[in-house]
Design a protein around this nucleic acid. Structure first.
Lengths: 98, 98, 98, 98
DNA sequence: GAACTTATGTCGGTGC
DNA sequence: GCACCGACATAAGTTC
């Protein structure tokens, strides 16, 4: 990733030292904020794409809620998933559920 | 509860046809799931980038928490934001939180 | 987004600017806020009690994390839990997990 | 898969003793879980009460979202709050969010 | 830095 | 038909 540190852009205007210093600060903050905003836009776009895929699934008969559960389960690593299953069994045994 | 996930049809097909249909279904589901997973990876990557920018801001002295507030405020349209701030001030005045 | 904050119309029960000037609403708002704060204190106290029970469990050898999972599972109604199990099986079958 | 949940001891006991020990464990676990569940019910009840107060405020014209901000602000100590607000104003000025 | 809690935004359901 | 409402899912903040 570029721009780590102190690249505050070029200062072609003639201003007082105070303004210059303040200008640096302002620009630096502004640039950071704007980078974040751009990234959040991208993120939102992808979120929308994801939503579309769920809708597409729904259109061919898959329940989006259950698709989400599947995605969640697949996110777990196999060991964790197996552990969860084991706990489920343990729980049933210990507390008398079917 | 009926219709868990996807009902690919009744059970009147012969076994081989059933398996074939199921295979189709599985692939379709798998493809949807995998598309979602790819998109979520991208989304996560961008989320990490955003986090990095906050850390970068922090490294040069900006409080990430307040940066987040700024981002939130900039997301609102100016009129709504001003009205919200005015009301907040009102409430604060009412409660001695000057 | 209209009507951020308070309703400036002439509804008899809404908060008018006149009321604000007279300090009537100040009291009303203050009382609401204080009721919330009292309730949140109580809530926090109970939260602390819960935490203590987990610690007590931990002290006799139960993993708090797993206790939490058990509590979560017991919160589900049996049908939902069974559905979850069914989905788990479906998922395994459809996407080839153990 | 070691030590999921609770290790009730080594396996040197006879079967009947083992079962007895397991019975103890189960009861102990059950009691802890049930205490937690009772506490969580209380906690939920209070949470509902809090929600009701916000609704009551809304019914007389107060925006619940802003009420929440007030509650949060009042939770902070005054000096911290003022410092936070000062910094926020600074950042806002820097970005033209007057 | 991981987990839990709280807050916010979104979506499907429901009443007028 | 729209608007309100509760449920779900995500994001943020807090705590250990």
């Amino acid at each position: 990733m570029p721009d780590i540190g102190h690249n505050s852009g070029d200062d072609t205007f003639s201003v007082s030292d105070e303004d210059l210093a303040k200008g640096h600060t302002d620009n630096r903050l502004r640039l950071l904020i704007e980078r974040i905003e751009r990234l959040e836009e991208e993120k939102k776009g992808i979120g929308d794409d994801i939503k579309d895929v769920y809708l597409e699934g729904k259109a061919v008969g898959y329940d989006p809620k259950i698709m989400r559960q599947i995605v969640r389960l697949r996110k777990m690593n196999p060991d964790d998933r197996k552990e969860m299953e084991a706990i489920l069994d343990l729980y049933k045994a210990a507390l008398g559920l079917s």
